[in-house]
Write a protein that binds this DNA or RNA. Structure first.
Lengths: 119, 119
DNA sequence: CGAGTCGTACGATAGGCATCGTAGTACGGC
DNA sequence: GCCGTACTACGATGCCTATCGTACGACTCG
């Protein structure tokens, strides 16, 4: 099981409540190519991933920055698990707030990537 | 009639071709509250509007800037008609490139506005 | 032609932000 | 206790951008 053995490791991170998530913030978060890529990998994985498992073309400190932007805008949820920091899409919250938006965005990103890959 | 007598008035404006429209650019354009508001008004109107018909809380020169960002990102199309500059959503192009995205975005914006208005 | 309206161009300004490097903290294993 | 790993915090830097005011160009109407 994935949701029943947290042991959340004392360190906690601030997340916006559902009511605090702003559409503009989500769009801004996803308008950066690096962050869009992170979200796409996260959606493709369908599960939480540690920061180091992502394939992004920036240094660690920059990627820390991007993960924070994603968390503070409400796109992902971050939880420490030992030395690793696990990242998960807030799909349920986003689907509740903005029905269909996340799927459209992911589909659009895939569509665009396919087109640029020459079909 | 409104759609059959162009006489485009010599002044032409550069627009990105469909293939040049980037998802990141569209999201960035819509991540600004002023521009999101413009797009919502445009979608609600369902027709082209002149710049001065929008209710935005910025000066003219700033609104010129926002309209240009929207045009250069591929979200709207701008055409001169006499002294007025008509703005129209590129709904067909966007729907073709990113199916369902625009509708999800507009629905999300409306949903959020309703929630903040206290239903 | 002259005046008024609509929108632009340009410069200035202030703030935001993506990026990096370095130094440091938290945790797990030996 | 010590070391390695994972990630963070902080400061610096350079770019982008949202905002404005002012001066100007394009067009319409009298």
């Amino acid at each position: 099981m994935t949701t029943a053995a947290p042991v959340p490791s004392s360190r906690d991170l601030p997340h916006p409540a559902c009511g605090e998530i702003r559409l503009e913030g989500v769009l801004h978060a996803l308008s950066d190519p690096v962050r869009l890529r992170i979200v796409r990998e996260l959606a493709a994985a369908g599960a939480a991933l540690s920061c180091s498992q992502f394939d992004v073309p920036v240094t660690k400190s920059t990627s820390t920055h991007h993960f924070r932007v994603l968390r503070e805008s409400g796109v992902i949820r971050q939880v420490y698990e030992g030395t690793a920091k696990m990242n998960a899409l807030r799909r349920d919250d986003l689907d509740d707030l903005f029905p269909g938006l996340l799927d459209s965005l992911l589909a659009a990103a895939t569509h665009q990537a396919d087109r640029r890959n020459g079909t």
